[in-house]
């Protein structure tokens, strides 16, 4: 029943060896995870030039060389800077708007009754179709890309927050009022923490969407940015350049996902607990 006690009672030596064992098993499972990726890269390297012309698919070593060259020469930095700005600003604006909108509509049934049909209708529009329009409205600079990323992120976060706030147990909220909470305290102690898992889920899901928004915007029309770089590489038959651009985007999403995961674990510690108290009443 009580794992804590049994671990503490075991002699030190056996605990040490079990720590080693768990480290070894962790390393083994890590290697196992890496295996498919390595196999895919090896196959790509091998098949390129044999099965498929290299001009179509490039090959991992060429992509790596290209990446090195791009960073060594500094050619990529202006693109990175532009796209980075667009991503961060678009994401932040979209998340903020989604949280505010979702929270307001979630708490007020009256507002929800008026605005929900509109939000749902706009939700149905393929946001990518708005790209040309945003270029007209906000120009070919970073404004139009920020708008596109923000609107894609907004709907995702909005919907999650709205659902999260509405899922708060009515009885728990009432109980908190009886305990003496005013509306502000109710928000802070009940609605925020109860909606937090939904907010974080929305934020995490929104990361790739912000990338889509920005890249599509840059494809459509732009002066600078990774999207433009990829677009130009593909129109000059430079698959290594295309893949290099994609790898950079991949790295961005991976980092953002890692950060979101860290935030989630930190804020939602109460959801992921495994230890239990001794079960005597």
């Amino acid at each position: 029943m009580n794992d804590l006690a049994t671990t503490a009672d075991r002699p030190l030596a056996s605990r040490k060896s079990s720590a080693w064992r768990s480290l070894a098993s962790k390393a083994a499972s890590g290697l196992l995870t890496l295996l498919p990726g390595v196999a895919l890269l090896a196959f790509w390297q091998w098949a390129s030039g044999r099965w498929i012309k290299e001009i179509y698919v490039s090959k991992p070593t060429a992509v790596a060389a290209r990446l090195y060259e791009l960073f060594a020469s500094g050619e990529i930095f202006p693109h990175l800077w532009t796209t980075g700005q667009e991503l961060v600003l678009g994401y932040v604006i979209g998340v903020a708007g989604g949280i505010i909108g979702g929270y307001a509509l979630g708490r007020s049934p009256r507002l929800a009754k008026i605005f929900e049909p509109y939000v749902m209708a706009f939700y149905g529009i393929p946001k990518i179709a708005l790209a040309p329009l945003f270029i007209i409205w906000f120009g070919i600079g970073i404004g139009s890309k920020i708008a596109l990323a923000a609107i894609m992120v907004f709907f995702l976060v909005f919907y999650n927050v709205y659902t999260g706030v509405r899922s708060v147990d009515r009885e728990l909220a009432n109980l908190t009022l009886v305990m003496g909470a005013n509306q502000r305290q109710l928000t802070y102690h009940v609605y925020f923490p109860a909606a937090a898992p939904y907010v974080l889920l929305g934020m995490r899901m929104a990361v790739p969407y912000s990338v889509i928004g920005v890249i599509v915007g840059e494809f459509t029309s732009s002066i600078q940015g990774l999207g433009l770089f990829i677009h130009e590489a593909s129109s000059t038959y430079d698959p290594a350049g295309v893949f290099a651009g994609i790898v950079i985007l991949l790295a961005f999403v991976a980092v953002a996902n890692f950060l979101a995961g860290r935030l989630e674990r930190r804020l939602l510690r109460w959801k992921t607990l495994t230890a239990t108290a001794p079960n005597d009443i």
Partner: peptide, 11 residues
């Protein structure tokens, strides 16, 4: 108020 379910705040 002590409700049917304990209704502690899980967080």
């Amino acid at each position: 108020f002590v409700p049917q379910q304990a209704q502690l705040f899980p967080w």
